[in-house]
Structures are given as structure tokens and as C-alpha cells.
Amino acid sequence: MAVLFYIAALVAVLSTVLMLTRLNSVHALLYLTVSLLAVAVVFYTLGAIFMAVLEVVVYAGAIMVLFVFVVMVLNLGNRAVEIERAWVRPGMFTGPVILAAILGFEVAYLLMRTGSFTAPAAPVGPRQVALALYGPYLLGVELASFLLLGALVGAYHVGSRRAPGRMDGSGSDRIRVTAGGDLVRAGADRPSRPA
């Protein structure tokens, strides 16, 4: 089990690094999906089976589908890779890497100071999680549902073609001209505009 845990963790970190360094967004997405699936395996080894399922269904499933969908709508193609090549240079990584490394060391130091790692206690089952969710965290559940509703409405409003303001109209015309391709038409030109 422990071996599985370390392998999965290594896969997750590696695939994340690879995701970050990809120029093509579709490739990056695939690496991200791999990373998420690896995290799901980590959850499984930690005993959180239900969480592992959710990780696969929601993250690797629903959220990734959203990303893929957006990438298809944008239809970036080879030109985007060229642009990315101009934007992403190895030198740019130094600053953030140093900062992040400092942060990582600090957190690790704090964790070390708190206490040593021991073998995990008995795994926490879905039953306990559900009881906690609808017991002390009921208010949190309600708030989360509000948040999701708000996100739904917000996403619909922001993404709507008929959004108010000067973004309307001309923008949607331009996308058709610049980003040709049948997929774009199929995705972007939803039947919202009667010809």
C-alpha cells in the first residue's frame, strides 16, 4: 500500500510539472488529468475511497470536460503554440520557483516541528463523512449549494452572448472571422442568434 502511495504521489508531481511546461494546451490538459487521477489513487491509499471516486468523477470528469470544451471552442491550433513559445521562457521560472521553494521549505519545517508522522489510524469511511456533513457542517453544505447556484447564474450571465455592455455584438462577430473551423461554429455559434 505504501509503495502504491509513493508511486502515485510521484506520478502526480511529475505529471503536474509536465503540464506546466507544455506549450500545447491540449497536452497540458491531458497531463493535468493524469495528475488528478494520480491524486485519486493517493486518496485511495489514504483510505478515503469515496473521495477518490469524487476526485475522478468531478475533477477528472466534469471539470476537465469543461476545460476541454473551452479549448475546443477557442480552437487555438498551431498559432497558439507559437505564441506560447514566445511567452514561456526557461528564465521566467527562476523567480517563482525560488519563492515556491522557500514556501515549501517553510511549510515542511513547520510540519516537522509539529510532530513526527506515524502510521495512519483507522481509515475514515464515507459513513462518518456523511454524518459530519449533515451534522455539524450543515450550514457549510447550505453555503456550498448557494455558492454553486451563484456560480451557475454568474457563469450563465458572464458567458451569455447577450451580456450587457459594449462587449456585446461585435465580439461575437469577430470570433467567427478569426477562429474559423467547423468545430468552432458547432460550439461557439449556439442557436442563440436567429439568422
Binding site: L148, A151, G154, G159
Partner: peptide
């Protein structure tokens, strides 16, 4: 839940 909400809004903003 937060991630789902964030992705939905974030991608909509990205499209715009």
C-alpha cells in the same frame, strides 16, 4: 464545490 464554481465562472470569463 468551490473548484467547480470557480471553474465555471473562470471559464466563462475566459471566453468573454
Amino acid at each position: 464545490a468551490v473548484a467547480a464554481a470557480e471553474v465555471a465562472v473562470g471559464l466563462a470569463l475566459l471566453l468573454r
